[in-house]
Computed example of a mutant assay.
Amino acid sequence: MPRDDREHTGTRIAAARKLAGLTQRGLAQTIGYSYSLVHQVESGHKPASPDLVAAVARALRLDVTALTGQPYVTELQQDRLEGLIRPIREALDLYDLGADPDLPVRAAGQLVAAADDLCRLVRAARLNAAATLLPAVIAELTTAAYRRPSTTLWRALGSTYRTAHDITVKLGYFDLSTIALDRMAWAADRACDPLLAAVRQYMRALVYHREGEHRIGLRLIASGHGLAADAEPTPDAVAVTGQLHLGASVIAARARDAALVEDHLDQAKVCADRTGESSTHWLSFGPTNVACHAVSAQVELHHYDTALALAAGVELPHSWAPSRQAHFHIDRGRCQMETGRTDAALESITTARRLAPQQTRYHPGARETIKGLVYMRRTTPDTLDNLAAWIGL
């Protein structure tokens, strides 16, 4: 089935490699991957894994988005999401202007509820609704926090900045997500909330995980642990500590340090045994999340059969956020595709799309899995044709 593949990740890697004056063999030697894999990725016959993309970007001193093509503007325009980015950018720039004298604000309890509703919308993968409401809530909370400063209001404002980060990351605007995290630190400092600050370090670490900068990512996790240790010894502090260990496990897996992966997963399990299934600062932590991260770590280590065996034992609670469930199915779909289980992979990605359509459409891993399935199958069923068209292939 003929397709226009001029804009897939492999062709972007090839163009960047040529500009750097490297052959395929030269690039393969530089990043520590096989020539055969680089050749297949560039020709479009094998999907570009996140770790390979990060390795190429690091070697060629590029941002990962230069290779993935994010943000996916055509699809964003189709979903009427691109026009929502500028208001978010403007709202993030209000932080040092003080109170808006012309802006009426609601009571503190109503504003906290509005911030929580935004988190809830993102976890439900309703990105359009969250992105539409976010700028006004940021503006209102900024003014309220300046007029009557309190830990409650600064913490709620920090939560909206975290939501801005979540939305912009999912839509591929990573420059804006970094600004949102800076604002989150600013609010956390005024809230005197070490756990909010620790969550921010966790999220910063995942940014460096995406870019393949493992050492910086692990240093940020260590910084987060220090902040969490300064908090009151509550169940929330235990949950944040456990989540930091989960983040470290995936970063260590990308760095191919299996021993460090197991160490962090073991420590996360100890925390999960103490908390059970819990949610704090809109992080879902507990035994289920530990099990899902164990799968993700094996995916990053390229131990796909092991990952599938672990995934078979995971039972996702119905109460779990659709965004988190979809991420699990995307991981599983990648494993199934890599091990030749194309029908199962198609089912997993279809499930992710049903649970969180916008998140799945803009997830680089899901897109690469769909592309991989197209190239692996001699005939494509209607469902796969539909998915391929959906991501613009």
Rank of each mutant, 00 (worst) to 15 (best):
D230R: 15
A55L: 09
A309P: 02
A197L: 15
D230E: 13
A345Y: 09
R354S: 14
V112P: 03
Q336T: 07
Q29G: 07
P322E: 09
D175N: 14
T152Q: 15
T163W: 05
P357T: 15
T288P: 04
R353S: 09
K170A: 14
R215Q: 15
H39A: 04
P101G: 09
P87K: 12
A125S: 15
L103D: 06
Q298D: 14
W154H: 12
S249Q: 11
Y375V: 03
V38I: 15
L384E: 06
G226K: 10
R215P: 04
L346P: 03
V105Y: 13
D5E: 09
A136Y: 00
Q358C: 06
T11H: 09
S159E: 13
T275C: 10
A108S: 08
L76R: 00
R334K: 11
H209S: 11
I179F: 08
A228C: 02
V207A: 05
L67K: 10
I370H: 01
D305C: 01
E277Y: 06
S36W: 06
E232Q: 09
P104G: 01
L84Q: 11
H165I: 00
M376E: 14
C192L: 14
V73W: 06
L153V: 15
A54K: 03
A366Q: 05
Q29R: 15
R61A: 05
Q243K: 06
S34A: 13
R354K: 13
R377E: 14
A107S: 12
R80I: 03
A108Q: 06
T351M: 12
L283G: 03
A268G: 08
T380S: 15
E75G: 04
A198P: 01
C292M: 15
A156Y: 13
A294Y: 02
A185R: 08
T68Y: 05
A129L: 12
E277Q: 13
V122R: 10
G98K: 01
G21T: 07
D100A: 13
L121Q: 14
D166F: 04
V314H: 08
R6S: 09
